[in-house]
Amino acid sequence: MTPVSGIAGAPLAPTTERPAIQAGLIVLTILLLVVLLLLPLVVVFVEAFAHGLGAVVGALVEPEAIAAIELTLVVAAVSVPLNTVCGLAAAWCIGRFRFPGRRLLITLIELPFSVSPVISGLVWVLLFGANGWLGPMLDRAGVRIIFALPGLILATVFVTFPFVARTLIPLMQEQGAAEEEAAITLGATGWQIFRRVTLPNIRWGLLYGVLLCNARAMGEFGAVAVVSGHVRGQTMTMPLQIEALFNDYDWVGAFTIAGLLSLLALVTLAVKATLEWRIGRRGGALL
């Protein structure tokens, strides 16, 4: 346990704590992280494997489970790219230009973060539900949005809207526009600048934002619960299936799907750690 911030040659670094205090703080931190963050994760896997591997596999090959996994993948595959493109656009105009209302725009982009997921579902019901503003019209046209794939996607897009933009905006602001402006004076087109200069600079941040966006898209519960309709094997995403299995007294099934989603979270974190390690070596900060 060596302090990172001593001045070279100083016998007792004045800018750090005594080793005993350091050790104490480290132990406290680890304890906090383990109890608050690690244990819940461990519980998921312990419960899933309570009846052995066979039960876990059995739960995974249930047609309803497969349908839920497929639906979740489809929802994420549509919402994440949409929000990635938009997040990039938002980061470009906010991170590279100054204009009136910029601060308000940032606030609006971040708004879905702090809107209750229940409200994120409710707004689509108010808009597209049979009693909603556009509902009767859509009904006559035979278009189904709520209680079908489009509704699930809309709710997910709303909830995951800020992730990419929020990761990229501070990153791009910090990097500054000098490199891009140099490219422009060298005669590069906008698209060339984006592809050759901007994208390489922000790619790790972008990937991180996309990963978090994806994790949330697959794991969203409250918003999709409102617009799902809970049709078994049809409109149940993985988090909804977890609740349903839980209610079927199928704990192994519930925790198996939960484990699968947790595994996704773990992979996300592992990729993120790798990214940070690479960025760390390049001397940049991610967030």
Binding site: M1, S5, P40, A215, G219, G222, P239, L261, L269
Partner: peptide, 24 residues
């Protein structure tokens, strides 16, 4: 400020609540 064994692992754990589905 500190370096200790398992620091990277602990650091990854911090993002767990962002990645773990809320229902789980």
């Amino acid at each position: 400020r500190y370096r200790f064994p398992g620091r990277n692992l602990a650091d990854s754990l911090i993002d767990m609540p962002l990645a773990l589905p809320t229902a789980v």
